[in-house]
Design a protein around this nucleic acid. Structure first.
Lengths: 109, 109
DNA sequence: ATCTGATACCTAGGTGTTCTAAGTCTTAGT
DNA sequence: ACTAAGACTTAGAACACCTAGGTATCAGAT
């Protein structure tokens, strides 16, 4: 019974994914790798969390996607931010900042 | 369909409650009030979230409780940290710091 | 030539927290 | 007598995330 990963990033996954797409399109697997790199291996993104999140966000109009090829000639589905996705990223970032500030203010009381 | 409060504090509620009990015992309602004050009204703790959280944490041995009277002579259930609860608070705080740092590092990339 | 590991995606099912939305009872104030 | 606030309770639903499998392709090693 390995106590692994449970719910590390509840609530932040969408924001993190949107953020990785801010500078251009990426495919799912690359998003996961990117997030782990950018967080110095602290954030491990489970594929069973990531892909459903991508579908959710595309369904909500925050992302659009299409099949393409990686540099290494592999088939992959590329995602990019829509205008709404960009707005959503802004909103979630702002809300996250506000929330963590509030939590921090409790913790340092 | 009022889009209100949804899951603001997912994952942080336990830590926040433990924190409010660090300096002595409080009853449930007072914990909610305290958290809202300390966070400058940013964190609204729903009673339907708070009380089940208290029961959970007591069941896990992080809290102990007993009935008592408030200063205004009202019946209320007072909670206090156990030794394990204190350890849990430390662990969760550390993990939260680590996580938010990682998220921050992604956001500022 | 085969095997392994990495790349890339998919999905069913379970877990766990939180919220919604009721409700009860008591006391204070009007 | 009525109302609002204090204090607690609980059932149910929503939702995100994880577990744990699965598929397929390609590169490199044995």
């Amino acid at each position: 019974m390995p106590k692994t990963n449970s719910d590390q990033l509840h609530g932040t996954l969408d924001m993190l994914v949107l953020k990785t797409l801010q500078n251009g399109r990426l495919h799912g697997y690359a998003i996961a790798v990117r997030l782990e790199q950018l967080s110095n291996e602290v954030l491990k993104v489970e594929e069973g969390s990531l892909y459903p999140a991508l579908y959710r966000m595309e369904a909500r109009g925050w992302l659009s996607s299409e099949w393409g090829m990686t540099e290494t000639a592999r088939r992959a589905r590329f995602y990019k931010l829509t205008r709404e996705g960009r707005a959503q990223l802004g909103a979630e970032t702002q809300s996250w900042t506000r929330l963590t500030a509030a939590v921090q203010s409790v913790l340092s009381s």
